[in-house]
């Protein structure tokens, strides 16, 4: 009712975030003093040319990498204060990841890949199986539940990866160029599924891309160049 009027919860609050790689000779500022504020329900794209720092930024936000300076507060927790094991546990319950490729455990079926994360969380069996079914239906792969990743197309694998990322009921799904290895039809299909999940289930997505057709589907576009945010536009 008045939910629409209520101020949406903050999911990500990143301050003065920097990551410097001490490369061969000169230090590389992969992420340079980035401020980022993401609210629940956003469908945001990080765009920029290759090497602009998109992956690094997503890794910092997801607690996969530690920033050189600044802080990341995700759902109220300061990631820089967590130990390695606390971070893994935090990711398990709060963040869903979709990488460019090789997201799935090759020896597990689609159903098992999706259920796996919930099993790590200790979700009871019936609840788990019901949710796996729902998720596979949502990504349109109910009929591929018993297939191993090797038997799925690239697009199908990425859809399973999205289902897997959602399985843990995370606060946010971080997707690093999820469509980079897909043909345009599969890419559009994947984005449509993500957009629908965002719209219908209020799932927060933050994804990187340099594909123009993918960018068009985003509702907010943050552009990175050389690790700096050069534009941040909200579309309607």
């Amino acid at each position: 009712m008045n939910q629409a009027n209520a101020k949406p919860a903050t999911v990500i609050d990143a301050h003065e975030l920097s990551k410097v790689y001490n490369g061969h000779q000169i230090p590389v500022r992969a992420v340079d003093n980035v401020h980022l504020h993401i609210e629940e329900g956003e469908f945001t794209a990080i765009v920029g040319p290759s090497g602009s720092g998109k992956s690094t930024l997503l890794h910092l936000i997801g607690g996969l990498d530690a920033p050189t300076a600044g802080s990341v507060i995700l759902a109220g927790t300061d990631l820089t204060q967590l130990s390695e094991n606390e971070l893994i546990d935090f990711r398990l319950h709060n963040i869903g990841f979709v990488f460019q490729a090789y997201n799935l455990v090759p020896v597990l079926t689609a159903r098992e890949n999706v259920g796996f994360v919930m099993q790590l969380q200790g979700v009871p069996r019936e609840e788990r199986e019901a949710r796996v079914r729902t998720l596979l239906e949502e990504v349109g792969l109910a009929d591929k539940a018993e297939s191993k990743p090797g038997k799925l197309s690239g697009g199908q694998q990425q859809r399973v990866a999205v289902a897997r990322a959602l399985a843990s009921k995370p606060r946010i799904v971080l997707a690093d160029e999820p469509t980079a290895n897909l043909d345009s039809v599969s890419a559009a299909n994947l984005l449509d599924i993500m957009a629908r999940l965002n719209r219908d289930e209020n799932i927060t997505f933050l994804f990187s891309t340099h594909d123009q057709r993918v960018i068009e589907k985003a509702r907010r576009v943050i552009t990175l160049v050389d690790g700096r945010v050069v534009s941040d536009e909200i579309r309607q």
Binding site: N85, I88, H93, R164, S168
Partner: peptide, 16 residues
């Protein structure tokens, strides 16, 4: 390496 990295990313801890 990559697969183990993904497993760690999605929340499989060191003990596991």
């Amino acid at each position: 390496v990559r697969e183990i990295g993904v497993l760690k990313s999605v929340g499989m801890n060191n003990r596991r």
